[in-house]
């Protein structure tokens, strides 16, 4: 059992959790949060894949991908929340 394996499990778990919530919830804010959790899960499996347990280092390129992902995600989240406020909460009714 190595460090990256633990985080692979956690990343896959976060992804599954987010997908379950997306399938079962209608509340706009909660769906946006689930999409955020999904993105975090993806970043986690990405970084765990770039982690080299032998040297204890992580490939800088996926680190840059994860950083870009965080900034892109906050942009889209802000846009989604602004839209959700304008239409008021429920994503479909």
């Amino acid at each position: 059992m190595t460090t990256d394996l633990v985080y692979h499990v956690a990343g896959a778990g976060l992804t599954g959790l987010a997908l379950w919530r997306l399938a079962t919830c209608r509340d706009a804010l909660r769906r946006i949060m689930a999409l955020n959790v999904l993105a975090i899960g993806i970043a986690m499996v990405l970084l765990a894949s770039g982690f080299d347990a032998a040297t204890g280092r992580t490939d800088p390129v996926p680190q840059a991908f994860a950083l870009t992902g965080i900034v892109v995600l906050v942009s889209v989240t802000a846009a989604l929340l602004a839209l959700a406020e304008r239409i008021g909460g429920r994503s479909n009714d």
């Binding site: 992804t15 997306l22 706009a28 769906r31 946006i32 999409l35 999904l38 993105a39 993806i42 499996v45 990405l46 894949s49 770039g50 390129v61 996926p62 991908f65 992902g69 889209v76 846009a79 989604l80 839209l83 959700a84 239409i87 994503s91 479909n92």
Partner: peptide, 23 residues
């Protein structure tokens, strides 16, 4: 709103695919 939610879900699928391609 529905477009952006669907688009973000699509983007994240794409990103997951890219992450797996990297792995």
């Amino acid at each position: 709103f529905d477009y952006l939610s669907a688009g973000l879900a699509g983007s994240l699928l794409l990103l997951l695919g890219v992450a797996l391609a990297y792995a």
